[in-house]
């Protein structure tokens, strides 16, 4: 992680904590704000990835994966935006599912890290497992038990935890191969 990455991660961590506080104070409005932020983030990532594909990655072996990644991000961004006007229960279900998927990616990533003999996998594992558990909690509270406020609180807690992991990663030691 470069110094610039560390600063960006720190800022993102603080923003996540701020969002979590907004969610706890005003669960209704806060949820829409979070969705709007997720939508903007996903759309911008999608557009940026597509531009990178058109400009550079289309000439690269395996560059199509960059195109698919860009399209998926863009799709998710647009889908998230369209959900802002939907009933709150669907918003919660969507956020819960998104959190579970993020957590699953973390779990698979951990498996891959262990398989490849990496030393530092515990932080990724903790990140993945917590996201899966909290995502399920959001879905159970919001979708099945019909307790949306509890679901929002669970999501806010997960955000705080995620922010702490992000900030902790800033201080994590990097390993790199020395090219001679």
């Amino acid at each position: 992680m470069t110094r610039f990455d560390r600063i960006v991660n720190c800022i993102f961590g603080i923003l996540q904590i701020a969002f979590a506080i907004v969610l706890m104070v005003s669960p209704g409005r806060g949820l829409i704000l979070v969705l709007a932020a997720i939508s903007i983030g996903l759309t911008l990532t999608g557009v940026q990835t597509l531009i990178y594909y058109l400009d550079m990655a289309r000439s690269m072996v395996g560059g199509k994966s960059v195109l698919y990644r860009g399209l998926i991000f863009l799709d998710l961004g647009i889908l998230t935006r369209s959900l802002i006007d939907d009933p709150r229960i669907y918003l919660i279900a969507y956020i819960g599912l998104l959190t579970v998927i993020t957590g699953m990616v973390g779990v698979f990533r951990t498996y891959d890290l262990i398989r490849r003999g990496a030393v530092h996998w515990r932080l990724t594992a903790a990140y993945g497992i917590t996201h899966v558990i909290m995502g399920i909690a959001v879905l159970v509270f919001g979708f099945f038990l019909r307790l949306p406020v509890m679901a929002v609180f669970a999501y806010a807690l997960m955000l705080i935890y995620s922010a702490c992991i992000r900030i902790a990663a800033v201080f994590k030691e990097n390993k790199m191969i020395y090219i001679q």
């Binding site: 992680m1 470069t2 110094r3 610039f4 990097n174 790199m176 020395y178 001679q180």
Partner: peptide
């Protein structure tokens, strides 16, 4: 003429870096 592991880790990947 070269960079240490630590220098590479801390390398700034902005345009000037």
């Amino acid at each position: 003429t070269t960079q240490l592991q630590l220098e590479m880790m801390e390398a700034d990947t902005s345009l000037l870096g």
